[in-house]
Write a protein that binds this DNA or RNA. Structure first.
Length: 903
RNA sequence: GCCCGCUUAGCUCAGUGGUAGAGCACUCGCUUCACACGCGAGGGGUCAGAAGUUCAAGUCUUCUAGCGGGCACCA
């Protein structure tokens, strides 16, 4: 079989996904075992706009590793894909495109045509993301793909809305909301961002009515809002203002009379201790206004321009122009006390970065605090869901649920779920699942539907249940809910995670997911957040092209839940690992004549197994156990490291090398066939272990192995096409497989490795050319190690490039030898007559002895501490004693070697 | 203001009480019949600092410094 020397990831990436997909490998129905346990994940639906970034690739890798792992274990596995309509951001992008290409606004087009255009956009970009996900190898069930605006999901949204309305959780009314003057819509508290900014604090003086010239000074960052002031508030305990309570001030520029009120909210230590109150344009002032029954004077309109109520001089002015004019007028009137530099935080629209204008507006609201109560109890009583990592996310989640505010649901947009509310000609509202139902309620068909749409996150909140068919009691819903894990980024714990828990608990009576895995953030190499505006993002597709999907997945799995700076070196090293796998398989395949991956080692017939076989089997099962535990505990870095070192160090560096002589025998003997088959079996099993992380290369190689076939599939997938993804994942059972862990074989091979390494060290340090053969004299006074070395002389000779190797209890060693002390009193000598520099060799041994003495000193100090001997566990103490004895023995051995070298 | 996280080899990061690790980078030697995306051998860390608990601390506690994050407030 011709196999290229270097692995080409593209070839494998193009070969397998379509086959897996068309064979139905991703569908849970492929699992024929009716009693199979269930594993399910609902993907965080990406926005259709734009393309996938590294954060998506990270989440998808984690989910795919879990899905493939569970699938191979025989779980009925569903990873459900889908997309989010992402109301505001999608609408903004299409509007931008419309402006750029045709110079039109959405209003020029009209609602219907505009929405049709957004659908068109979705069809175009959705395809791109599907392509990217296929490239990633994501084993999602495309037949169950969902979109938040699908008819069925829309039904779920209406059901959610109507039920909450009927229960009084949703209401229609006035409230102080975040308004984006550019996007012309209300926003929830979670869709706005605080930003700190350098600005000014203006000290304005308001004259007291009637009293000869007395003034009260208020401090403000927004002088233009004074036009809407309807009071000044002071703290009731503030003695400076005690006599002013109930007094009346004359509001400059407006001439309006406003009262001085007392309110606990006011902090006497801040500013002047007197606060101007603008109930119509500030959330805190709004609340104060309600407490004191103050009028609300709206002076700023939805375009952030001043209204008629702001007065003729200001009407129509932009808020910032009005600010300058107000300040100028105060200065002219001598009422501007001072202006100081001041850093404050400003609220901006999360999408367009426009400064938010708090406005009183009629909107739909959800009493989130009531919906949040059940999830909070679930967390407190049963600690569900389980957050990974637990800190800090569990606390973050709890804190959020404890402080819930009403959620502004309505958006003045066109792209999204239309609010299921209709108004009759008198303005009475009817909330219903359908227009017909609303008509029946109203007793008329002259109804107008509310023009607004719902916050995108309202439909997202239903994702785990709506995608499975809710409100219908579908088989999928019964089978796959609650989902097993949610894998997502930390910035949407409030926006999304908590809300899915609310709807899940409300409508299904239980958690939406068992676990919540929060991924880390990937920064650029300077530690900066990747962003489009900074143009410092790394496109996953570019990395796939450069290093291959499998290598990239290993990096992403290793990143897991830690924040990391992106580093190409890391990908390169895993690319090299993929190549290592490729070449190890290449070696096995080049030597596979007469062999079979299916029957080889059998893992059982001990009498046929060499020391190396027993050793690799033991290493393999320890690896299997460690990797499974790591995946179960979401310790992906640990899993990857374990696999990497097992494959590279144990399998390639030692097993292949130790068995090479037998595997490459010229004659086709039973011994050669057996060795080859065992080698193939280890490879085949290793590929299975690697498959969840590296789906492409493992499939590519697995299919080439002689002897693989449909009979190797997991019982649950009987009858399916042969593919590694449906084989059973190797497992280690403490009860049945404990005999496969062979500590004797492990310590024997460890001794062998030490011997070989010491000889190689001698060769290297003494500058003996690689081509130059040496002789080895191995003295092993203990029977057992002597037997070990005797049976392994061929391997020892091969790996140290020795021409002859003698083993004995106590061999006499020529003075001109380089020597090394080994365990169990053994030692190895390399006679080097004429090649050895005595001084250099003494120095080498001296260095080794110093190292050992340092360690012995430390250990003896510890052992001589009676407290340690008394209080430390006995096994610790005896372990230490044994080590000290071993080191002492080696020190003595080296001492003798040095004496023999003495002039 | 409250809460939280991080600080380990030049770089990116593992390591939740018992001999300080990996990859990359670095040094030396190798066209050794799977692989130079490789093989072999090396060098490199007072685990941010201080105090404490413990027989034993990178690991637990407290404090300090630097960096980062979340929440509240910001008139």
């Amino acid at each position: 079989m011709e196999i290229p020397k270097t692995y080409d990831p593209k070839q494998a990436e193009e070969s397998h996904y379509a086959r897996w997909e068309s064979a139905g490998c991703f569908k849970p129905e492929t699992n024929r075992d009716a009693s199979a346990p269930v594993y399910s994940i609902a993907i965080p639906p990406p926005n259709v706009t734009g393309s996938l970034h590294m954060g998506h690739a990270l989440q998808h890798t984690i989910m795919d590793v879990l899905a493939r792992y569970k699938r191979m274990q025989g779980f009925r596995t569903l990873w459900l894909p889908g997309f989010d309509h992402a109301g505001i951001s999608t609408q903004i992008m299409v509007e931008r495109q419309l402006k750029k290409e045709q110079g039109l606004t959405r209003h020029d087009l009209g609602r219907e045509k505009f929405v049709e255009r957004v659908w068109e956009w979705n069809r175009q970009y959705g395809g791109e993301i599907r392509m990217q996900m296929r490239r990633e190898g994501a084993s999602v069930d495309w037949s169950r793909e969902r979109f938040t605006l699908d008819e069925k999901l829309t039904r779920a949204v209406r059901e959610f809305f109507v039920r909450c309305y009927e229960e009084g959780l949703i209401y229609h009314g006035d409230g102080m909301i975040n308004w984006c003057p550019k996007d012309q819509t209300a926003l929830s508290d979670l869709e706005v961002e605080k930003e700190s900014q350098a600005g000014k604090l203006y000290y304005l003086q308001y004259p007291l009515k009637g009293d000869g010239g007395r003034r009260v000074t208020v401090a403000t960052t927004r002088p233009e809002t004074m036009l809407g002031d309807t009071a000044v508030a002071v703290n009731p305990d503030d003695e400076r203002y005690g006599d002013l309570l109930g007094a009346t001030l004359e509001l400059p520029l407006m001439g309006r009379e406003i009262p001085v009120v007392a309110d606990e909210f006011v902090d006497p230590a801040f500013g002047t201790g007197a606060v101007k109150v603008t109930p119509a344009h500030d959330p805190n002032d709004y609340a104060m206004g309600q407490r004191h029954n103050l009028p609300q004077v709206k002076v700023i309109d939805p375009h952030a321009r001043m209204t008629t109520e702001a007065g003729a001089e200001f009407e129509g002015l932009d808020r910032y122009a009005a600010r300058e004019l107000v300040v100028q007028k105060f200065e002219e009137l001598g009422l501007l006390e001072k202006v100081v530099d001041y850093e404050f935080s400003i609220t901006k629209c999360g999408r367009c970065r426009t400064v938010i204008e708090p406005l009183i507006s009629t909107q739909w609201f959800l009493k989130q605090a009531e919906l949040g109560r059940a999830p909070l109890e679930l967390m407190r009583e049963r600690r569900e869901p389980r957050f990974v990592p637990e800190t800090p996310y569990e606390k973050v989640y709890i804190n959020w649920l404890e402080n819930l505010h009403d959620w502004t649901l309505s958006r003045q947009l066109w792209w999204g779920h239309r609010i299921p509310a209709w108004y009759d000609e008198e303005g009475r509202v009817y909330v219903a699942r359908t227009e017909e139902e609303a008509r029946r309620q109203a007793g008329t068909d002259k109804l107008t539907q509310d023009p607004d749409v719902l916050d995108t996150w309202f439909s997202s909140a239903l994702w785990p249940i709506s995608t499975l068919g809710w409100p219908d009691e579908t088989e999928d819903l019964k089978t796959f809910y609650p989902t097993s894990v949610l894998v997502t980024a930390r910035d949407i714990i409030f926006l999304w995670v908590s809300r899915m828990m609310m709807t899940g608990v409300k409508f299904r009576g239980e958690r939406a997911f068992d676990d919540v895995y929060i991924t880390g953030t990937i920064f650029d190499k300077h530690g900066q957040r990747m962003s489009k505006t900074k143009q410092n993002g790394i496109d996953p597709l570019d990395v796939f092209d450069k290093y291959g999907v499998d290598a990239t997945r290993l990096v992403l799995a290793s990143v897991g839940s830690t924040d990391t700076r992106w580093n190409d070196n890391q990908v390169e090293s895993y690319r090299n690992f993929a190549n290592k796998i490729w070449n190890a398989a290449r070696f096995c395949l080049m030597n596979s004549e007469g062999a079979n991956a299916a029957t080889g080692i059998g893992w059982a017939h001990d009498k046929d197994l060499s020391l190396a076989d027993r050793w690799i089997r033991s290493r393999f099962f320890k690896t299997t156990r460690a990797v499974s535990q790591a995946i179960e505990n979401y310790q992906f870095y640990e899993a990857v490291q374990t696999l990497y070192h097992f494959f590279w160090d144990d399998f390639c560096d030692w097993y292949i090398e130790l068995t090479k002589a037998e595997v490459t025998l010229a004659e086709d003997t039973p011994a050669r066939r057996g060795a080859r088959s065992r080698l193939l079996t280890v490879l085949e099993q290793s590929l299975r272990l690697l498959h969840p992380f590296m789906p492409y290369i493992t499939e590519e190689l697995w299919l080439r192995l002689p002897g693989v076939g449909a009979e190797m599939l997991h019982d649950a997938y009987r009858g399916a096409e042969p593919t590694i993804m449906l084989t059973s994942y190797p497992r280690f059972s403490e009860k049945f497989d404990y005999k496969k862990i062979d500590e004797q074989a492990e310590s024997d091979v460890q001794a062998l490795i030490e011997l070989i390494s010491r000889v190689r060290n001698i060769r290297s340090e003494l500058g003996i050319k690689p081509g130059e053969a040496v002789s080895l004299l191995i003295s092993a006074p203990e029977e057992q190690s002597r037997a070990l070395f005797e049976t392994q002389t061929a391997q020892i000779a091969r790996l140290t490039r020795a021409s002859d190797t003698s083993v004995g209890a106590q061999l006499s060693v020529p003075r001109a030898s380089a020597r090394a002390a080994l365990g169990n009193g053994a030692e190895v000598a390399v006679p080097l007559e004429g090649l050895i520099d005595f001084a250099q060799e003494r120095a080498r041994l001296g260095k080794e002895q110093d190292k050992l003495r340092g360690e012995a000193e430390r250990l003896e100090k510890q052992l001589s501490n009676p407290q340690f001997v008394e209080r430390a566990p006995e096994e610790k103490v005896s372990e230490l004693r044994q080590r000290v004895a071993d080191i002492a023995q080696r020190i003595v051995a080296i001492e003798q070697m040095l004496e023999a070298l003495a002039e």
